[in-house]
Simulated assay, not measured.
Amino acid sequence: MEPVHIPTNFTDAGKILGMFPIRNTVEAVALGIPTLMLLLSILPFGLVWNLVGCLIVIVPLCGFALMGIRDYSLLTFVRVYWNWRRNRKILIYGGETAICPRKNACRI
């Protein structure tokens, strides 16, 4: 049997520049363009200082959106976090009582 050579970039199919998933790239563009337009309309400086101010805000924002959080895109992470916050329960057993954040959320 002949050995098969698997290239190092065989999993780069759904990525932009081989690094960023398409969903993260779309989210970065969707966050970056409106923020850029808003900042250009709000900032009262000259053109050069407006661009510098926009870059100070846009580059970290889009970089964070491109990287994502724990292999999730930003919107997916927000959805997972929101579901966790909504469905969490605090249960402390101290004899016969349970302390819950919402009524009828914890049952013993």
Rank of each mutant, 00 (worst) to 15 (best):
M19L: 15
N24K: 05
G53M: 00
L61M: 10
A30T: 07
M1E: 14
M1V: 14
F45Y: 15
F20I: 13
L61A: 07
V52G: 05
G46L: 04
L40I: 06
I58K: 01
G53P: 00
I58Y: 01
G18T: 05
V26S: 04
G53V: 00
P7V: 10
N9A: 10
N9V: 05
I22W: 09
L17W: 15
P3A: 12
L39I: 11
L43E: 02
M19I: 13
I58V: 11
R23P: 00
L61S: 07
L51N: 03
C62T: 10
D12I: 05
V26M: 11
T35Q: 04
S41I: 11
T8A: 15
V29N: 02
A30D: 03
L43F: 11
I56L: 14
W49N: 12
T8D: 13
A28E: 03
E2D: 13
I22N: 07
T11D: 15
I58R: 00
E2C: 11
V59L: 12
E27A: 03
W49F: 15
F20S: 03
V57E: 00
L38P: 01
G14I: 02
N24W: 01
H5T: 14
C54W: 01
T11A: 14
V29A: 11
V26K: 02
I16S: 06
M1P: 11
N24Y: 01
T11Q: 14
M19Y: 12
L36W: 08
L61E: 02
R23D: 06
M19E: 07
A28H: 02
L43T: 06
C54G: 09
K15M: 13
V4T: 12
I33R: 04
T8S: 13
W49P: 05
T11M: 14
L39G: 07
G14M: 09
G32A: 07
V57Y: 00
C54S: 11
L36T: 12
V4Y: 07
T35R: 02
M19N: 08
N50L: 01
P34W: 06
C62I: 04
V26W: 03
I33D: 05
W49C: 08
T25E: 03
I33F: 08
G14W: 06
P34V: 08
V4M: 10
I6A: 10
L36D: 03
T11I: 14
N9R: 09
F20G: 01
P21R: 03
S41E: 14
I6Y: 13
N24T: 02
T11W: 12
P21E: 05
V52R: 07
T25C: 10
P34S: 06
I22T: 13
P21S: 08
V4C: 04
N50Y: 00
G32K: 02
L38N: 04
K15F: 14
T35G: 04
L39E: 04
R23G: 05
G14P: 01
F10V: 12
N50A: 09
I58Q: 01
I22P: 00
G32Y: 01
I22V: 11
F45I: 04
N24E: 05
F45E: 06
G46V: 03
L31C: 10
P21C: 03
I6E: 10
I42R: 13
V29M: 07
G53D: 00
T25Y: 07
